[in-house]
Design a protein around this nucleic acid. Sequence first.
DNA 1: TTGAAAGCGCTAACAA
DNA 2: TTGTTAGCGCTTTCAA
Lengths: 329, 329
Amino acid sequence: MANIKQVAKEAGVSVATVSRVLNGQSTVKSKTRIKVEEAIKKLNYEPSMLGRNLRNSESRLLLVLIPKISNPFYLEIIKGIESTAIGKSYNILLCETDSNPERENIYFDLVRKKMADGIISMDPAVDMEALTKLAKRHAIIQCSEYAENSLIPYVTIDSEEAAYRAVKHLIKIGHTKIALINSDEKYLYARQRKMGYLKALKEHGITVNDDYIYHTQQLGFEYGQQAMKKILNLKDRPTAIFAVSDLLAIGALKEINANGLHVPNDIAIVGFDKIDFSNMTHPTLTTIAQPMYKMGKIAAEMLINKIQGKEVESVILDHELVIRESTSG
Amino acid sequence: MANIKQVAKEAGVSVATVSRVLNGQSTVKSKTRIKVEEAIKKLNYEPSMLGRNLRNSESRLLLVLIPKISNPFYLEIIKGIESTAIGKSYNILLCETDSNPERENIYFDLVRKKMADGIISMDPAVDMEALTKLAKRHAIIQCSEYAENSLIPYVTIDSEEAAYRAVKHLIKIGHTKIALINSDEKYLYARQRKMGYLKALKEHGITVNDDYIYHTQQLGFEYGQQAMKKILNLKDRPTAIFAVSDLLAIGALKEINANGLHVPNDIAIVGFDKIDFSNMTHPTLTTIAQPMYKMGKIAAEMLINKIQGKEVESVILDHELVIRESTSG
DNA sequence: TTGAAAGCGCTAACAA
DNA sequence: TTGTTAGCGCTTTCAA
C-alpha cells in the first residue's frame, strides 16, 4: 500500500506538501494541490492513522463504559455520544464492565497506554478511587451516574426530583400503599430515588412501611420478578409499585400478569427510563423519560472539550413523567 | 509522561532491552529484567500503543458492523466476539450502520486508514460490492448474515431449516392457517426463512395463501404491530403466526393482546432469535434459539486468523426450537 | 509557496 | 545477553 513518500515522489513534491494537501491547508498553490490529488488517486493512497496518531500523540478514540450492554437505557445515550464523536472525527469504544473492577481496569489501561483519549463513564459501580486517580492525567466525564463531591465533571438528571414526581403521580390517582422496588443503595441514584419516594410519601402524610421497600442486586427483568413475587406474598399488599428502572418494572409486571392480577386496576406501576420496550408491554408502562440522546451528546462534547484542555462544567438536565396505561385504567 | 528512552536511561540499559522486557522475551538476564522493572515502576511508565502500533503496522482494533444497536439479537454475539478479542489483545469498535451506505463507508474508511485491522459484518443490508472490494486488501468475516457465492468467509445457521422446523411445530399442534411476518426479501435470510415456511406447508399439503404473507421494512416492534393489524382485519383470519424475528413477534403479540384476543388459544405465535425479552412477554414466546455467543466467538477467531494470514473456512452452526407459552395453552 | 529534516515511541535486524 | 541503529508514516518547524 502506498505511503506519503510514494505520493510525494509521484507528484514531484515533498512529503510536507502532500501532508499539507491532506490536511487542507490553504498555503498550497492550487496547481500543486491538483498534482498531489492526482497522485493520490493514481496510487489509491489512503493516509495511515497510525503514523498520524503517533505524531499527534492521540488515538481519536473515546471509551464509553457501561455496566451492561443489554440494558436498553444506554442505547440512546450511546447514539448521542457517537454521532457527536463522529462529527468531530472521534470514534467510540463501547466497553461493558459488568461492574467488574478487573474488566474496568483493562479499559482504564487503554487510556493509560494512549489507545484512547478519554472516558465517558456510565457505570454506577465504577471504582471511584481508580477513576479519580486516572482523571488526574486523563480526560474523564461521568454521564448519568456520578459520584457526589467528585471533581470529575458529570451530566445527569435530578433523580430525586424525578422519583418524587413519579410517586406523587401515584398518590394523586388515589394510592397510599405504594411499594418501592429499588436497586442496591450503594449506588447514588438508588439513594436519590429512594429520597424522592420518601419525600412524596411524607408530603402527603403517608407512613412509610418498611415491608414495601425492596432492593435488587442488579437491574434486570428477573430481579423485578423476584421482588414482585415477595410483594405479592404480603398479607397487606400494596396497590402501586414504583420501580427505579423499567427493566425492574417490566419484570414486576410480568409477575403480576402471571398471577392473574390486573394492571392498573389491582396494582398500578411506574417505571423509570422510558426504554423502547416499555411501550410494548401489556399494558404500556408509565415511566420517567430522561433526555438520553441529549445527555450523550453533551457528555461527548464535554469530553472532547476536556481533551482539548478546555474548562468543563457539570450539567443537570430535565426529565419528564410519561403517563401510560399502567397507571390509568 | 515517561517514554521508553527515559526508562532505559533510568535502568542504565538500552531501549532495546526495555522493549524486550516489555514483550516478555526470555533473552534478558533476570538481573537486568529486575533493573528495568524497577525503573518502569519508579517512572510510572506505561508503554504507548501509538508507537507500538505504528511500528507493527496494526491497530489491534476490530470493527463490528451491525444495522441496529437496539436489536437485542446482536448482544450475545457481540459478547462472544469481544471476549474472544480481548483474550487475544484486540478491542472491538461497535459500529451501527443503520443500513446506510454512507455510514458504512465511514467505517470502511477506518480499515482503509489502518485504524482497524479487520471487520466482522453482521449487516444484511451491507453493500456487498464495496465489502467484496475491501476484502481484497483487508480481513473481513460475515457473521449471521452473509451473501451467497461471496468469497468472504461466514459463520451462520441454516435459516431455511430453522424456519421449516418452526412452522412444522405449528402444523403439528393443529394449525393450518399460518401467517408469515417476514422482513424485506432483499435480504437472504428473509428469502431463506420464507423457503422454510413454504417447504413446511407444502410437505403437509397446505395451500399457500398469499394473504397470509407479510413483509416489513425493518425489524422493530412497530413493524410487527402494523403487520398484525392488517392480519387481524382479514375475513379469514389465520390461527398462527410465524415471525422471522422476535421483535416482530413481540409487536404482533402486543397487537393481539390489545385486541382482547388470547395467545395461544385464539392465535399462536412463533418468533426467531430468542432474545431476552421473549421470555418477559405475556405469554412467553416460542422461538428459535441461535448459538449466538458461540457464533460471535467463532467469528472473532476466524477474523483474527485471517488477519494473521491464515486460511479460514465458513461455518454453519446448529439452532434449536424453544417451545414456550405462545404455542402451548 | 515549498522543501529538508527532526522526531513522535516503539520493535527488530544486526552486530558485538 | 545486550546495544546500536534504522525505520514504521506522519506533521511541523525552520529556512529558503
